[in-house]
Design a protein around this nucleic acid. Structure first.
Lengths: 343, 343
DNA sequence: GTGAAAGCGCTAACAG
DNA sequence: CTGTTAGCGCTTTCAC
């Protein structure tokens, strides 16, 4: 079963290969008669002809592929959405995506980038596993690059990250709208942009709502179920306990459900909870479902591709960037606060 | 900044392009003198020459790429491990992976497979989002294919799935080893291979341990936190409550923690829990950490690649398959059962 | 030891 | 309207 080439189709249809090429590619300038065109199409179909992309790409001097390289992306459940967003945008543009993973090893990363360059990739999407600032690796120089979920120290390189401030604000606004005024925030103890920016958003939203900040209601904890549980335990044990809790992360919010259950407090009647991440299988699986802020991973993937394509066609330019908003996903964990029980 | 080609290197080194090619590829038969070879290497380095993979592949008649196509893989947090396992195995073989996602749309899937064929992929990894039986799509005919996390109805196609029976057995063995004899099983209510096979493993392990099966201890529930919670509530309320619970899925086991907390039962002192999936951020984030059976996604990805490469070099053959064991991950949710409180 | 030449399968000028 | 021709950049006989 030898592969059928354009020559076979030409022979079969009794025309030259250039006619076949023009007919199959609908080349306007080459005015092929409808009859010949149909005949060629017919023969090509019968033979099961599939143009050889290798030859085509070599001739066209474009590979039609874009590289996606992640550090430890594979360890986060959100990575897939980013990849998906990029892949679908690429599909629309008729491009393919080659996926690589560097495991955070710079030497390996350099080899992978070399392999991508060798394949003449038209651009590289360089994804971080979490929102941070970084220097694009030297080996990317000369290849159009967009950073995903990372801010570039090099202003020439484009990047896209979530708008953490807006996300936190959306969460707090949702609680304020339901009438809450004592709103706790359990932040990630790690010193990363997301933690700093969500805290800023939390404060900004409270301020705008005319609610004074009570430092006692802001806790930091390890980004685990246990961390979230411990913080909730403390906050819910207070005489003036908050009527709502905003969590840095859905996983931490699981701990809040547990603490509430233990304290015989109902979610949301006694305490409303808002998370962050919209973690698959978790946020919607909790009961009541966890209201949470979705990270715009899909959108970041798509944005990065569009930016890549734009910079490819246009000139080089200085590099652009975006902070994308995540949607607030409303589920059952937020309601009006309980009426004060006297005192 | 034009791309430097082999011709530039040849000119620079004062030799012909064939000599450059032979030198750079260490072709034994062409006996290049060490001096020329070094000179060529030097010039190539200085010029930053990178061979054009497109041209090389066209000439060699192999693309060096393998396609990975998933249905809704992108929606599951485990997909990444499968992709990672495949990617690393491919890297060792010097191959690249093109990633596609069909979203479960057969028409789209056919187009994507066509695009992969056009790129002359050397094989396709066809991944399912969960363990099931399926018919490989018609469009894959003629391309070496391996199914991941799916059993093929077509015996000509190779496949790899988790060994669900062994996984469940490992979970129960762990509990039995710790002294448990009343072990509940909360299964997924969905009628899928994983549910049937894990039940079989549960029963087999009990039998082998000489423990009679008590149908009252087997429940089915929706595969959510809530489903797991409801089942745990019922089971833990029984007079003769089980001392250990085995869950179809980590997410469901979260509900068990909540039910236990509510019933003032300690995990693991009063009730031991074993999950399934080793869900990232969840299993290790719970407290105590959830002992669970890891799905061999990484290994499935790697196995599939090896099988693909083997079938590529060897003849076609009838298609092979494997059921891979997942590891039991021990954390803090299992201990010896409580001493019976009288009765 | 090294070079000339052919050709992978295709597209795109240009002729006719 | 259709065919001829010239490559895309590389590898690989086969001469010398």
């Amino acid at each position: 079963m030898r592969r059928v080439s354009i020559a076979d189709v030409a022979t079969g249809a009794g025309v030259s290969i250039s006619t076949v090429s023009a007919a199959l590619n609908d080349v306007e300038s080459a005015r092929i008669s409808p009859r010949t065109r149909d005949r060629i199409r017919q023969v090509a179909g019968d033979l099961g002809y599939v143009p050889n992309g290798l030859a085509r790409n070599l001739r066209r001097q474009r590979s039609g592929i874009v590289g996606f390289i992640g550090d430890e992306v594979a360890t986060t459940p959100f990575a897939v959405r980013m990849i998906l967003g990029a892949q679908e945008a690429l599909r629309e543009a008729g491009l393919l995506m080659v996926l690589m993973n560097s495991q955070g090893d710079p030497a390996l990363e350099a080899r992978e980038i070399a392999a991508l360059r060798q394949q003449q990739v038209e651009g590289i999407l360089y994804a971080s596993m979490y929102h941070r600032r970084l220097d694009p690796p030297e080996s990317l120089r000369g290849v159009p690059t967009v950073l995903l979920d990372a801010e570039s120290r090099d202003p020439a390189v484009s990047w896209v990250v979530p708008d953490e401030v807006a996300g936190a604000r959306a969460a707090i606004d949702e609680l304020v709208t339901h009438g809450h005024r004592r709103i706790g925030f359990v932040n990630n103890e790690e010193d990363i942009p997301a933690a700093r920016l969500r805290l800023r958003g939390y404060r900004a939203a409270l301020k705008r709502a005319g609610i004074g900040a009570d430092p006692a209601l802001v806790r930091i904890a390890s980004p685990t179920v246990e961390g979230g549980y411990g913080a909730a335990r403390e906050l819910l044990a207070r005489r003036d306990r908050p009527t709502a809790l905003f969590y840095f992360r859905d996983v931490m919010a699981i701990g809040a459900y547990q603490a509430a259950r233990e304290a015989r407090l109902d979610v949301p009647a006694d305490v409303s909870i808002v998370g962050y991440d919209n973690m698959p299988h978790v946020a919607e699986g909790l009961f009541p479902g966890l209201t949470t802020v979705e990270l715009p991973h899909y959108e970041m993937g798509a944005w990065a591709v569009r930016q890549l394509l734009a910079s490819n066609s246009g000139g080089a330019g200085p590099g652009r960037h975006a902070r994308l908003r995540g949607k607030l996903i409303r589920r059952g964990s937020v309601s009006a606060p309980p009426r004060p029980s006297g005192g």
